[in-house]
Structure formats: structure tokens, C-alpha cells
């Protein structure tokens, strides 16, 4: 029999070794294989900010799509062929003149992975999670982002079953651009709200 202390010692095994041991035990039970892991990694790697950027560019050029995206992000993603089966419902937060949205998960790291891919390092950091709800303007200044004076920031703390992405405003000077060119302007941070498209930012 294993005591709680022995269990604790096992859990404190360096994570890389513990993971290898877990995989070996699970593989011996037929619960996971290297092929399944590889397939799952390939699927997960395919979800990336370029997916969300396609949605944003379409919304900038097609008012009906924009309305769909705001009403039902999941359907809007599927309409562009982005796989959403098994993903949590996607909510879309529309930036407008005078209103900016910033997404955070103060409890963990909830992120719209189906349309943006793996959450970035900063999104998971304690500093980001602590500061976003309390001083969002000071936080996004770390990316060099400065909003127009008088802009209200709506901070969305993603605590439960939805995942949230920001629909940023189309930058000025892009009249006549096609969808692909517009999509190339949209970065990961723009769809979380730490940056805005077309603004010189130091990272993202």
C-alpha cells in the first residue's frame, strides 16, 4: 500500500521523468500510443493566430459575416472551415471607437485555442493575470499600446465555459485591401487586446 507521503514523493519527481513514466504505464495499458500523441500534436499545431486573423479580415470586409461573428463566434469560425468540434463556445468582443476589450484568465489560462492556437507565455504569467483586471492600460503599455484618450477598457476575465477573442477595429489607411492583405496585419495580441492592428508594437 502507498502512503500519502509516498504519493507526494512520487508527484515531486522531476516532471520530465514523471511524464516519461506515466506515458510508459499508459502505453502498457493500451491507453495512449506514440502515434496518437503525434497525431494530436499535429492537429493542435494547426490551430494558430492565422485562423483568427482570417475571421477578423472577413469581418472587416463582409458586414453579414461580422454580424454572424459577433452573434456566434463558433458558427463564424466553422463558416471559414476552422474545426470547432469539441471546442468550448467562442464569444467575440467587438472593439469600437471609444471601447476596447482585453481578455485575461485570472484563475488559469483559458484561451481561444481553436482559433488562436496555444496560449502565449505572457498570457499564462502571474504578472499578466494579476495586472489585467486592475490596471489594463498600464499592462498593455508594455506592448507599446496606447489607446485614444477617453477609450473605455472592458476587461473580460475568462473564468468558465466560453472562450473569448477580440474583433479589433480595422486600421486606417487600409481601404481597398483584400482579405489576405488585411489578415496579414492581424497578430495574436490584437485578438486578445494587448495590441491593436497597425500600431507599432514591440512584440506580438
Amino acid at each position: 500500500m502507498t502512503t500519502p507521503r509516498e504519493t507526494q514523493a512520487l508527484l515531486e519527481t522531476p516532471a520530465e521523468a514523471l511524464f516519461a513514466a506515466l506515458l510508459a504505464v499508459l502505453a502498457a495499458k493500451g491507453m495512449v500510443s506514440e502515434a496518437e500523441l503525434a497525431a494530436r500534436m499535429a492537429e493542435t499545431d494547426a490551430a494558430a493566430p492565422a485562423q483568427g486573423a482570417r475571421m477578423v479580415a472577413r469581418a472587416w470586409t463582409d458586414p453579414a459575416y461580422r454580424a454572424l461573428m459577433i452573434a456566434d463566434g463558433t458558427q463564424a469560425a466553422e463558416a471559414l472551415g476552422i474545426p470547432m468540434r469539441g471546442a468550448p463556445p467562442l464569444g467575440v468582443l467587438e472593439n469600437r471607437p471609444g471601447r476596447h476589450h482585453l481578455v485575461v484568465c485570472t484563475l488559469c489560462s483559458c484561451y481561444p485555442r481553436a482559433v488562436l492556437g496555444y496560449p502565449p507565455f505572457w498570457f499564462k504569467s502571474a504578472a499578466y493575470r494579476a495586472r489585467a483586471v486592475r490596471d489594463p492600460a498600464g499592462l498593455i503599455a508594455e506592448w507599446g499600446t496606447v489607446l485614444a484618450p477617453g477609450t473605455e477598457i472592458v476587461v473580460v476575465d475568462s473564468t468558465a465555459d466560453y472562450r473569448w477573442m477580440v474583433l479589433p477595429q480595422r486600421p486606417p489607411g487600409t481601404a481597398g485591401w483584400d482579405e489576405a492583405a488585411l489578415a496579414s496585419l492581424v497578430r495574436e495580441g490584437d485578438m486578445i487586446g494587448v495590441t491593436v492592428p497597425g500600431m507599432g508594437a514591440k512584440a506580438g
Binding site: R134, D135, D157, T159
Partner: peptide
């Protein structure tokens, strides 16, 4: 599950810069 709006000025002292908190 609800989306609920909160006023950050009722939660934290200045300096603060969020206009609205929106939380599930």
C-alpha cells in the same frame, strides 16, 4: 452561466484603468 458586469472602482483603489469588468 451569466456574463456579469462589475465596476472596478468599487473593488480597487486608484490607480486603475479598467472601465468595466465583464466576468462569467
Amino acid at each position: 452561466l451569466y456574463h456579469v458586469r462589475f465596476d472596478p472602482s468599487a473593488i480597487w483603489p486608484p490607480p486603475r484603468s479598467a472601465g468595466v469588468l465583464l466576468v462569467e
